[in-house]
Amino acid sequence: MTLTESHITTLLEEVMDPEIPTISIVDLGIVTGIDIEHDAVKITLTPTFSGCPALKIMEEMVADKLNGENIKNEVITSFEKQWNTNMISEKGLEALKKHGLAPPPRHKGYIELDVLSDTPCPLCNSRNTTMQTPFGPTLCRSMHYCKNCLNGFEGFKPVS
């Protein structure tokens, strides 16, 4: 069988983020390279955060997936292409919301505090919200409070 990039992508779309199981690593935007040479593929991942502990696990999940299909592979992590939240696909933004996380707003290369202070509530869509802290249960999340439906919620924070 000849390997194609689209076939590999389809397989990687089944590898989900270990901490946010509604989003695939493809939709998260961390697959920055699929290099096919003969019957082997080299996958390059880029970290969402330098200190993300899920990184090694995701490398192993990708290798497991490809091994399961008997595809020779090498998985590496590289900072060559730096991840930012604009790399999350539209489908990915929906997937985050499905997990109860406010998706990050699209940005123009820089993040201002205002962007975080009126994050739409993923439960009732109100913008009448405040950010309580830019840090949360994982490095990629911030914590907010909705003054409309009176619920606390988490946001996937924008990163430039």
């Binding site: 955060f49 330098s50 993040i111 840090f135 924070k157 990163v159």
Partner: peptide, 9 residues
């Protein structure tokens, strides 16, 4: 370049 975005927070 990567650290810069993280440091913002």
């Amino acid at each position: 370049k990567k650290f810069r975005g993280e440091l913002k927070y």
